[in-house]
């Protein structure tokens, strides 16, 4: 099942980038404040900004690449759907739906992962009196901002998908030899 493999691989890549981006955001937020050594704050802030920009660029590239892969590997399927009466809009909904679904699914994996990390840490390392000091390695705020940024990053992929779906003629369904 090629489509399942594709979905799994991209979900895990998205998951890794969501963690990376959230961590960069958290690092950036943590540099706000006072520190006895200002140059440390400066270095941390620069590292966080570079890391954030890099993760954003990779997430945009990945979404464009994923959209390209979907529309390329599903050419026959898209052409067949157009043959049987799907409009361009109907097909776009399917492609955009897959892009958004992968993003949301990756977010759920990260969220689930965080819950387990919290549970694990709380159980093994924290006593009841210290529990209020505890926070997971990624906080909820940066994670929510990351998912919003990630959804915005999908726009690149969505535009690619729109263009390629529009250009794909239904007659391809009859021409392609597998």
């Amino acid at each position: 099942m090629r489509s399942k493999k594709r979905f799994t691989v991209f979900t895990f890549m998205y998951t890794a980038i969501i963690i990376w981006m959230s961590f960069s955001l958290q690092m950036l937020f943590s540099t706000v404040g006072t520190d006895p050594k200002p140059w440390i704050i400066e270095v941390n802030r620069n590292v966080a900004i570079i890391s954030l920009v890099l993760s954003a660029v990779i997430s945009i590239s990945l979404s464009v690449f994923y959209a390209w892969i979907i529309t390329n590997y599903r050419r026959t399927e898209i052409a067949t759907l157009k043959c049987i009466g799907y409009t361009n809009n109907n097909v776009r909904v399917i492609i955009v739906g897959e892009l958004i679904w992968v993003t949301m699914f990756s977010f759920l994996i990260v969220f689930e992962l965080l819950i387990h990390v919290v549970a694990f840490s709380a159980y093994f390392y924290y006593t009841a009196d210290r529990l209020s000091d505890f926070s997971p390695f990624i906080r909820f705020g940066p994670l929510l901002i990351t998912i919003a940024l990630f959804l915005v990053a999908q726009i690149g992929g969505i535009l690619i998908a729109y263009r390629r779906v529009l250009r794909l003629r239904p007659i391809i369904a009859l021409r392609i030899q597998k």
Binding site: T80, C83, I84, G85, T87, P170, A173, L174, I176
Partner: peptide, 14 residues
């Protein structure tokens, strides 16, 4: 697209 959905059916070689 509407004509194909309402009036036409396709059977493909592949």
């Amino acid at each position: 697209s509407n004509i194909r959905r309402q009036k036409i059916g396709f059977v493909f070689q592949d």
